[in-house]
Amino acid sequence: MKPYYQTENDAGLFLCMQQDDPQAFEEIYARYFLKLSNTAFKRLQDREMTEEIVQDLFVNLWLKRHRLPELKNPESYLQTLLRNAVIDWFRAQARQDGFAAEWLAQPDRQVVNATEQQILYADLRQAYESTVDQLPEKCRQVYALHQQGQSVADIADQLQIAPKTVESHLLKAHTTLRHVLKDFSAVSVALLNLLLG
């Protein structure tokens, strides 16, 4: 691979990839495969599933390269894609009768069965969305932008507020969500942590 790709910043690599440059894609893959895999494994505790999810993420990234939004923070965008992919995996498992029996069998997984887990997750999701809706308007706006993968600096620039104010709103949102949802099960809290990032 040419040295150019190894020294180019992420935004430049994404632009090249969007212009059908496979070497730029290969460099993005090299930079982020291990980092994303480590993040996914912490959440899934399943190496085979981790590899499959991260591989699919990169395949889709290449296939959808012409439809990507303008990215000021590519790493944040990749982390958002990963978080969504892991959440989708949990949802898919919840729809299966067994609901990851081996995962739930771990000592700290206090869920009786698949049906209960589906109910708990539905309750958690409803409580989460309700809590977000009840955040103060500016706080909710900042939180929504952050969940879309925008950085603190980008949000501050877009809303014309100080970065410290953005951080304050995010802290308030996360603190509120964790307080309101603290009584959910261990598995549900793990899902909440995925939502909060």
Score class of each variant (00 low, 15 high):
87 I>G: 04
135 L>Q: 03
58 F>V: 02
179 H>F: 09
99 F>T: 08
128 Y>D: 01
157 D>H: 15
7 T>L: 11
30 A>S: 14
111 V>R: 07
172 K>D: 00
153 A>Q: 11
188 S>A: 13
40 A>M: 01
64 K>F: 06
88 D>C: 10
151 S>F: 01
22 P>N: 07
7 T>H: 14
39 T>H: 11
122 A>G: 11
97 D>S: 15
35 K>Q: 09
136 P>Y: 04
38 N>H: 14
185 S>R: 11
152 V>L: 01
13 L>I: 08
77 Y>T: 00
149 G>M: 02
41 F>K: 13
18 Q>W: 03
185 S>L: 04
61 L>P: 00
40 A>C: 12
29 Y>D: 00
7 T>K: 15
61 L>M: 03
89 W>A: 10
27 E>I: 05
45 Q>E: 09
118 Q>K: 15
155 I>R: 01
107 P>T: 06
40 A>E: 00
159 L>D: 00
78 L>G: 04
177 L>M: 08
197 G>I: 02
177 L>D: 00
145 L>D: 01
160 Q>P: 01
56 D>M: 12
106 Q>V: 08
182 K>H: 13
105 A>N: 10
159 L>M: 07
90 F>S: 08
165 T>P: 00
5 Y>I: 05
156 A>T: 03
93 Q>L: 06
27 E>C: 08
120 L>H: 12
75 E>D: 09
186 A>I: 11
191 L>V: 12
172 K>G: 00
10 D>G: 10
141 Q>F: 06
110 Q>H: 14
32 Y>M: 02
167 E>V: 13
168 S>P: 00
54 V>G: 07
89 W>R: 15
22 P>W: 04
29 Y>K: 12
38 N>Y: 06
11 A>W: 02
98 G>K: 13
56 D>V: 10
100 A>F: 11
109 R>D: 00
103 W>N: 04
22 P>L: 06
20 D>R: 15
54 V>Y: 03
56 D>H: 14
93 Q>W: 03
104 L>K: 15
170 L>K: 06
78 L>R: 05
93 Q>T: 06
125 R>S: 09
35 K>L: 07
82 L>I: 06
154 D>F: 05
149 G>T: 03
86 V>S: 05
72 K>E: 06
47 R>M: 10
85 A>W: 01
46 D>K: 09
75 E>I: 09
174 H>Y: 02
190 A>I: 03
61 L>K: 07
196 L>Q: 05
88 D>I: 07
111 V>L: 09
63 L>V: 10
149 G>F: 02
196 L>M: 09
44 L>S: 05
33 F>W: 08
137 E>L: 12
178 R>C: 01
126 Q>G: 05
186 A>M: 05
96 Q>D: 07
193 N>F: 07
131 T>M: 01
156 A>L: 04
134 Q>N: 13
170 L>M: 04
164 K>L: 07
178 R>F: 01
127 A>Y: 03
